[in-house]
Amino acid sequence: MNIEEFRDYCLSKPQVEETLPFGEDTLVYKVAGKMFAMCSLNNYAEGVNLKCDPERAAELRDQYPAIQPGYHMNKKHWNTILAEAFLPMGLLPELIDHSYELVVKGLPKKAREELGL
């Protein structure tokens, strides 16, 4: 998945906004103001950050060298995935979905209802 595909996939999720809160180089994807994905425009190959269930995060890190503890993130809840490294087909979109769903699940019921989620 290249950066354009990553960007398009994140933006295809309901109620997602693309922001640049950390400067012109860092794309951040949020749902209801909560971040679920982040990547560098200039260094996409260095990885994307995605939220992950802590137990699954540890399993993924053990299974794939291209998945590491979240760079500059809470290492328990975030993974950095070397987006251009070899990963099984469909794994990166699945991990984006997982990250998005974790954030949506953590929203208050009222917020989910207002957003239609």
Rank of each mutant, 00 (worst) to 15 (best):
P88K: 15
G106A: 06
T80V: 04
A66W: 08
P65I: 13
K110D: 11
P88H: 10
A58I: 14
H72R: 13
L60I: 08
L60E: 09
L92P: 04
P88G: 05
A58N: 06
L87G: 00
A83M: 12
M73C: 10
G70A: 09
R61P: 11
L91D: 00
K110L: 09
A83S: 14
N74L: 10
P69G: 15
G90Q: 04
P108S: 01
L102P: 02
L92S: 01
R61L: 12
R61Q: 15
V103M: 04
P93N: 01
A85N: 10
G70M: 02
L107C: 00
D62Y: 08
K75I: 07
L82Y: 04
L107E: 02
K76I: 11
A58T: 14
H77A: 13
M89Q: 15
F86K: 15
L91R: 15
E59Q: 12
K105D: 01
Y64V: 06
G90N: 03
I81D: 01
L92I: 10
Q63V: 06
K109N: 00
H72C: 10
D62S: 14
P65L: 15
H77R: 13
L82D: 01
I81T: 09
P108N: 02
E59C: 03
H72N: 14
L102Q: 11
P93E: 00
I96W: 02
L107M: 04
Y71E: 08
P69V: 10
E59P: 00
L102I: 14
L91H: 11
S99E: 03
W78R: 07
A85Q: 10
N79G: 09
L60Q: 05
V103F: 05
G106F: 10
Q63I: 04
Q68V: 15
L60G: 05
Y71R: 09
I81S: 06
T80I: 07
M73T: 08
G70K: 01
L91M: 12
I81R: 13
N74I: 11
S99Q: 04
L92W: 04
H77Q: 13
T80R: 03
D62W: 03
E101L: 06
K75Q: 08
Q68M: 15
E94D: 08
V103T: 05
K105T: 03
A58P: 00
G90S: 02
V103K: 03
L102F: 06
S99A: 15
I96Q: 05
D62H: 11
Y100H: 05
Y64D: 03
K76D: 08
N74T: 11
P93D: 00
L102H: 05
L102A: 07
F86R: 14
M73H: 04
K105G: 00
G70P: 06
L82S: 00
I67K: 03
K76W: 01
E94F: 12
E84G: 00
I96D: 02
L95T: 02
G90R: 12
A58Y: 06
W78Q: 07
K75D: 14
E84C: 06
